[in-house]
Design a binder for these strands. Sequence first.
DNA 1: GACCAGTGGTTCGAATTTGAACCACGCCAC
DNA 2: GTGGCGTGGTTCAAATTCGAACCACTGGTC
Lengths: 155, 155
Amino acid sequence: MDNTRWLDEQEMAAWTGFLAASNLLGRRVEQQLKDDADLSHPQYEILTRLSAAPCGELRMTELADALLTSKSGLTYQVTQLEKSGMVRRRSFPGDVRGVVACLTDEGWAKVRETAPGHVALVRELLIDVLTREQLTAIAEGLGEVSRRLRASTVR
Amino acid sequence: MDNTRWLDEQEMAAWTGFLAASNLLGRRVEQQLKDDADLSHPQYEILTRLSAAPCGELRMTELADALLTSKSGLTYQVTQLEKSGMVRRRSFPGDVRGVVACLTDEGWAKVRETAPGHVALVRELLIDVLTREQLTAIAEGLGEVSRRLRASTVR
DNA sequence: GACCAGTGGTTCGAATTTGAACCACGCCAC
DNA sequence: GTGGCGTGGTTCAAATTCGAACCACTGGTC
């Protein structure tokens, strides 16, 4: 017996569209960040997360699950950013094990000068291509999808 | 002056939802394929593309741009699949340079036994979470997005 | 106060990915 | 035919990624 519920045309289109957009967009964004700011996308994410946090600093763990990357991956990227002077590590007062990453002045400067170009690209390639209805559908639909994924993921 | 058109709340939600869904879904799918079939996602993609093609074979180049990966990446994955006996390389009659990848019997078997579980997961994590309206919005919206990305990408 | 399961981060090795350099060949124009 | 340019694939080194093992420490429990 084959009782698999295969995908109909519409569903298939959604899945392949999602996959393709995800690959191609990721690639383009990565490319632009590398060219304009000499940053990888994960690195850019780290910088913006930090810049949005009070005092420009966050615990490693908080960063790690905001970034959706593995712990070791984060360690690596933060080390890179530290080498290039964008970020500094400090130890967390109150728990010797804890480490907080902290934006340096150059880090702040980098974010300020990089963000506009990044936003412009995202707008051009994604946001402005969609109708308002598509935009809200995506915001709500994929929002729900990722909420469930987060919830069901073993921490 | 800062004349950047920043993202409003809705637009931001769409972008972050998209990024998160993309990361988390990719990770989960990857995981499942590895566990159930001992395949990476790119490898699975190769197998299904081949199985959808006449005679189960395609030129390397055709595969490469269907897969949205670099040429060298494809070479690597095909080599892996060849080692595990899912795929065979033949030379392309009519152009000595050309190489066609070709599903073996085990390759066919692998696709048949892996596809149902894969589809079920995609359904559970993505398709069945969305309303029908969201589904069509995503199919059309992201379809258009990726079409443009393909078109504007240097080949 | 000593034990012990659990946390926060780093280190390590293995697998994958990418772009650039490369090689061999086909396709033309002359 | 014979240069010379573009193509189809592979090879190479470098960067990144992941999970598993690890270390140092914390917070209860007895």
